[in-house]
């Protein structure tokens, strides 16, 4: 049986893991390579590394971080943040990533999805969408949540799918950093609108939040950062609790 995935996300700035609370306050949480390996050993099904500064001058630092992290990792590894061109994506794949996540650049130039997909395969392209509730639906934001685009989340998710995205990573900006639970309604809206897997992100605080987003939010995977880092929850313990709520999990892991 296909299991639901628990994805550990490392937000990285200047080669160190940090975690934004609603995209603003940053606290140093450690070395990316070491944390990624620890999460994988403790049962995380995948690792995502998001470079949250990603200005052009810092690309070298990122590539080095990706190399060091990939070296010790034998689970799927996604890298996102600042990927603007096919060349940026190629450099990250060459450094050992299995998938890339694209966000702002794909909204500005949607052909980027087609380009990466046709070179590396649809399974290698995740389109990340930051959404904030607005009326019945939600609006897409870019540049780390700083800029509204006027586009509807569901409509952009559908376009990303048509262009060959393999997965959608949906972050609820309303829920992000609150530890009060995922936005299950928004996740279900997107999951039902597309045929590709949807990864829910933003708001994880306890095991019940995860089972909720799988059962009610129809997510195929869920991502969490802050909940893992400070020893709040071990992935294995977390997964055992989610499994008890009736969700298929990879156990033992």
């Amino acid at each position: 049986m296909l299991t639901k995935r628990i994805i550990a996300c490392l937000d990285v700035k200047d080669g160190r893991v940090v975690k934004g609370v609603q995209f603003i306050d940053l606290v140093d949480a450690g070395d990316p390579a070491e944390l990624a390996a620890r999460h994988a050993l403790s049962g995380a099904d995948e690792i995502v590394l998001l470079d949250i500064t990603a200005t052009h001058e810092e690309r070298g630092t990122l590539i080095d971080t990706v190399k060091r992290t990939a070296r010790r990792l034998f689970v799927p590894f996604t890298v996102g943040g600042g990927i603007r061109t096919l060349d940026d994506a190629t450099a990250v794949f060459d450094a050992g990533a299995d998938k890339v996540s694209v966000n702002s650049a794909a909204l500005r130039r949607p052909e980027l999805i087609d380009e990466i997909g046709s070179r590396f395969g649809a399974q290698a392209v995740i389109v990340a969408i930051d959404g904030r509730r607005s009326g019945e639906g939600a609006e897409v934001f870019i540049e780390g949540g700083r800029k509204a685009t006027g586009r509807a989340v569901v409509e952009w998710a559908r376009e990303a799918e048509q262009r060959g995205a393999g997965e959608i990573l949906l972050t609820s900006m309303d829920a992000d950093g609150t530890r009060a639970g995922f936005d299950c309604e928004l996740t279900a809206q997107v999951s039902e609108a597309v045929c590709i897997p949807v990864i829910a992100s933003g708001g994880a605080g306890n095991a019940a939040h995860f089972s909720d987003v799988f059962l009610r939010g129809k997510a195929d995977a869920a991502l969490a950062a802050s909940i893992f880092h400070f020893g709040i929850a071990d992935a294995r313990v977390l997964k055992e609790e989610i499994a008890r709520a009736g969700v298929a999990m990879r156990l033992p892991c």
């Binding site: 299991t3 639901k4 399974q123 997965e167 045929c195």
Partner: peptide, 13 residues
């Protein structure tokens, strides 16, 4: 076949 998420992505037994 249609009717489920494609691609089939994740850990399966």
């Amino acid at each position: 076949a249609e009717g489920r998420k494609i691609p089939h992505v994740g850990w399966n037994s």
